[in-house]
Simulated scan of single mutants.
Amino acid sequence: MPQVSDQYPEITEFESLLEDARMNAATDWDEQFVADLQAKFSQYGDRAFLSDSQRAQLERIANDE
């Protein structure tokens, strides 16, 4: 499974995406999903695993205007 660093070579891009997703989370599910990713990122940093499905969901939430 790919790591955050594999998908986002610039770690600040991932951090910004997480913050955008946190601010845009519209449902309880979205909020919990983002919180879980933030917790994993806090624990493992850029070595945290991030599947393609997780990335798609994160980007969907972050870009939901």
Rank of each mutant, 00 (worst) to 15 (best):
Glu19Met: 14
Asp20Arg: 15
Asp20Leu: 14
Asp20Cys: 14
Asp20Glu: 08
Asp20His: 12
Ala21Ile: 04
Ala21Asn: 06
Ala21Gln: 06
Arg22Gln: 09
Arg22Glu: 06
Arg22Ala: 13
Arg22Val: 04
Arg22Asn: 08
Arg22Pro: 01
Arg22Leu: 06
Met23Tyr: 12
Met23Thr: 14
Met23His: 15
Met23Cys: 10
Asn24Ser: 04
Asn24Thr: 03
Asn24Leu: 06
Asn24Lys: 10
Asn24Val: 01
Ala25Glu: 03
Ala25Ile: 05
Ala25His: 06
Ala25Gly: 04
Ala25Met: 08
Ala26Phe: 07
Ala26Arg: 12
Thr27Gly: 00
Thr27Tyr: 00
Thr27Val: 00
Thr27Phe: 02
Thr27His: 09
Thr27Ile: 01
Asp28Ala: 08
Asp28His: 06
Trp29Cys: 03
Trp29Asp: 11
Trp29His: 11
Trp29Thr: 13
Asp30Phe: 02
Asp30Trp: 04
Glu31His: 10
Glu31Thr: 12
Gln32Arg: 12
Gln32Asn: 06
Gln32Leu: 13
Gln32Tyr: 04
Gln32Val: 10
Phe33Ser: 00
Val34Pro: 00
Ala35Phe: 06
Ala35Trp: 03
Ala35Val: 08
Asp36Ala: 12
Asp36Val: 13
Asp36Pro: 07
Asp36Ile: 09
Asp36Trp: 07
Asp36Gln: 14
Asp36Gly: 13
Asp36Cys: 09
Leu37Gly: 06
Leu37Ala: 01
Gln38Tyr: 08
Gln38Glu: 15
Gln38Leu: 15
Gln38Lys: 15
Gln38Trp: 10
Ala39Ser: 15
Ala39Thr: 11
Ala39Met: 08
Phe41Gly: 04
Phe41Leu: 05
Ser42Met: 09
Ser42Val: 09
Ser42Pro: 03
Tyr44Asp: 05
Tyr44Glu: 11
Tyr44Phe: 15
Gly45Arg: 01
Gly45Pro: 01
Gly45Glu: 02
Gly45Asp: 00
Gly45Ala: 00
Gly45Phe: 01
Asp46Ala: 10
Asp46Cys: 04
Arg47Met: 15
Arg47Trp: 07
Arg47Pro: 05
Arg47Gly: 11
Arg47Phe: 14
Arg47Glu: 15
Ala48Met: 08
Ala48Pro: 05
Ala48Thr: 09
Ala48Tyr: 06
Ala48Phe: 07
Phe49Pro: 04
Phe49Arg: 14
Leu50Ala: 00
Leu50Met: 03
Leu50Arg: 01
Ser51Ala: 00
Ser51Lys: 02
Ser51Val: 09
Ser51Asp: 00
Ser51Cys: 03
Ser51Met: 03
Asp52Asn: 07
Asp52Val: 15
Asp52His: 12
Ser53Cys: 05
Gln54Ala: 07
Arg55Ala: 12
Arg55Asp: 08
Ala56Ile: 13
Ala56Val: 11
Ala56Met: 10
Ala56Lys: 12
Ala56Gly: 05
Gln57Leu: 15
Gln57Gly: 07
Leu58Lys: 03
Glu59Asn: 02
Glu59Asp: 05
Arg60Asp: 10
Ile61Ser: 02
Ile61Thr: 03
Ile61Trp: 01
Ile61Tyr: 01
Ala62Cys: 07
Asn63Pro: 06
Asn63Asp: 04
Asn63His: 12
